[in-house]
Simulated scan of single mutants.
Amino acid sequence: MTFPFYRPLTRATLAAGLCLSSTVAMADTVLTMSSWAPATSTLSTEFLDSFAADVARVTDDRVTVRILPAALGAPPQHYELARKGIADITWGNLTYEPERFKVMWFCELPMSGESGEAGSIALWRTFDTYLKDMPVFDGTHMLAVSLFGGADVHDAHRALVTPEDFRNQKIRMGNPLQKTLLEKMGAIPVAAPATKAFELIDSGVIDGSLHPIESIIGFGLQDALPFTTEVEGGLYDAMFFLAINQGKWDSISDEDRAAISEITGEALSAKWGAFWDGENATAREKLVAMGHTFATPEPALTDMIRKVRTDFLDQWYADGPDFGLPNAKEVVVFFESNYAEISEAAQ
């Protein structure tokens, strides 16, 4: 799956989105969705299109979702697009705005889990129990959350299996959490979108890059990054949201809100996580068939990664009162216990 990058939000695109929303809504309750995934991507065809079809089905077509032909802004702007009602529904990654959504850091840390489905269900339960009423989420109603189920480091030259292997390696990353992770491991972070990975490797700017397995196939990086280090529980993860503007949600009838609620929340989060699991499994099978090198960390590297996680969490717990979460440790214990319970039940 590949995601292009879009031009910055402009008055013209905002006006276009608002006009389109008001025009199509005259005939029916049509919810406009801004998506930065190409219409041909599997995320669109297998998950977002399915979600839209399910909304129409459970409401007997009284409520429909129209995915706009082009995104109304860049990926980091999508939460605001929903909060402000520029688009009714959006999806994205909250840690594109890391300081604003510091409450979500815990689920993107190393060794958070290898199952996207179990992680997504556990994250939904955690969000629903502890986080949904926090002021940072005012203005939206969350429809689903998801996790990749662990992502990896991939290298152009060798498998990175010891702490020394990471030293001074130039590795592409996508957000400040990943930057801090790489710095703590002795690597040199290079900030760039995933779409630039091939170009940066080809020009010698980077040695490796952070991606989930599915993106190695999706971005055509199988030849450029032939070495993958698989950390148990993932070297990192990425948290995604699907949200609707609160005012728009409130405007839907009680009957239709109830129907949509039955297919969203934990149910849709599970479906989204299972989608990522399927994408990663398919990509891994293809890479194995191509002779791709998969390696596991030596004990010293595993210990270092575990310490990075522990240090991250200790600081996050200490900072919890500052971002409105004095019970931050309780939140993580809840998430981890739910993940373990769900994973065990699935075996």
Rank of each mutant, 00 (worst) to 15 (best):
D155R: 12
A224H: 09
D60W: 06
I67H: 03
E46Y: 08
L181M: 08
P4C: 06
L131G: 02
R309G: 09
E97F: 07
Q246D: 15
H211W: 14
A12P: 08
G92R: 05
G247Q: 12
A25W: 09
T13L: 08
G85F: 11
I305N: 02
T126E: 08
A159R: 05
P176N: 00
P69S: 01
V153A: 07
Y79K: 05
K84A: 11
T59L: 06
R158F: 15
F166T: 02
A259G: 13
V55Q: 07
Y130F: 12
G291K: 09
L325N: 04
M304I: 05
Q315F: 14
K179V: 08
Y130T: 01
M185Y: 07
V332H: 00
D54K: 11
F101M: 13
P110A: 06
V190S: 02
L20S: 07
V145H: 05
H141E: 06
A258V: 10
L160G: 04
L182R: 01
R62L: 06
F227C: 00
L235A: 06
V136R: 09
I86Q: 00
A283F: 06
A340D: 15
K84V: 03
G247C: 07
P226A: 12
L181I: 14
L287A: 09
P8A: 14
L268E: 03
V58A: 09
R172V: 04
L147I: 02
T45Y: 10
K170V: 15
D138T: 14
E108T: 15
A53M: 03
E97N: 15
G265S: 05
A16V: 05
G73Y: 12
T29P: 01
K132R: 13
V288E: 12
G234D: 00
L313S: 05
L14A: 10
R83S: 03
T302I: 12
A118E: 09
T59H: 13
F198Q: 13
W105A: 08
I305D: 00
A56I: 05
A224T: 07
M33W: 02
F106S: 14
F219A: 02
P110C: 08
V58R: 08
L287N: 04
A300G: 01
F335H: 07
E214R: 14
A82F: 14
D61R: 13
E199I: 10
V103M: 12
W316F: 10
L68Q: 10
I67A: 00
L181V: 03
S269V: 08
L210I: 05
F51H: 03
Y317D: 02
Y317I: 13
G139R: 03
A156C: 06
F335T: 00
P98S: 10
Q246W: 01
E230F: 00
D49E: 02
